[in-house]
Design a protein around this nucleic acid. Structure first.
Lengths: 164, 164
DNA sequence: AGCGCATAGTTTGACATCAAACTAAATGCT
DNA sequence: AGCATTTAGTTTGATGTCAAACTATGCGCT
């Protein structure tokens, strides 16, 4: 039990600092992947809290926006746009339909594919969610800073599009 | 059935473009939250594939690094550093112990908390994973560009730390 | 010493997600 | 027309995650 402190001890020394500071992140600290995950998680949690206040979940939000912006979109297209597997979408869309926020009918020419549209009720919910999202975004902007914001988003898009 | 194209049609017009282009992302396109999620997802998938090649999962990786860098760390500290709930860590640590990559013993002074250390076998796996992660990071760097990389990570850290 | 509160870790139940198998419909080839 | 292939969506099974309830220890106050 010498240098590496293998037995115990460690961290005993922290007598006030708000818990985190004494952690050594090693290479994680300067790796993009790890920081990307941590940031995403934090932002997601924040938005989750916000949208919960109006009884919605973040997952449904992007879905609703995409349907509203692309009337008649199919579930497969939607899942692609949304970056989720089509099977994940089944229950989400089902719920939106059940609650009357989205209207779903089979296409006339191709009766395999659905044709999704936001109902007036859905538009109302969407407006509330959008307000909520805007608040969230303002918050993020404040942290990021107006100067870097645009470049930051550009890089995110590039990663999403070009990785692997 | 007028302007909004509510009935059907839509997307019929796409006759070759690689599927995505005709989607209207509306406000999502310039919101940080959505792009953050898409980028994270893409990067995660890429790393997932890579680490699968050597029979590991991305989730275990950060855990292993953190234990290696903080010998004797407890599970709660670990979960905090890792940005995950402590309960999520139970099965992960269990598996690492079972496979002999991590050594877990109770602390002497406080027998509630565990004391985690990476074993020599764990260090070998960690080295492989680290090589793998470095390849992944090089890939990300290529996409981000050397010029913006530092600032980009700084912003991610800021978001993780300061949101809400 | 004893009692109540705090803390470390586990268990449990709910969910979101993916991937692979499946069903139904359309398309193409002969 | 008939059969193989492709496509849209659903079902199913495995994972990973959280939050809340729980167990056990330890700590503090009287």
């Amino acid at each position: 039990m010498h240098g590496t402190n293998g037995t115990g001890g460690r961290r005993r020394g922290r007598n006030g600092e708000a818990f985190g500071p004494s952690i050594n992140f090693g290479p994680l600290g300067h790796w993009v992947g790890f920081n990307l995950r941590m940031a995403q998680e934090a932002a997601f949690q924040a938005f989750s809290r916000r949208s919960q206040e109006i009884g919605e979940s973040p997952g449904r939000f992007a879905t609703l926006v995409l349907i509203a912006r692309n009337p008649g979109i199919s579930q497969t297209e939607l899942s692609f746009a949304n970056g989720r597997d089509k099977s994940s979408l089944t229950p989400v869309v089902e719920e939106l339909v059940r609650r009357g926020l989205v209207d779903r009918k089979k296409m006339e020419n191709d009766r395999r594919t659905y044709c999704l549209n936001v109902t007036p009720a859905g538009k109302k919910v969407l407006m509330m969610l959008t307000r909520c999202a805007r608040r969230h975004e303002r918050n993020l902007d404040r942290v990021i800073g107006e100067r870097d914001r645009k470049r930051f988003i550009q890089i995110l898009k590039k990663i999403a599009a070009e990785i692997e």
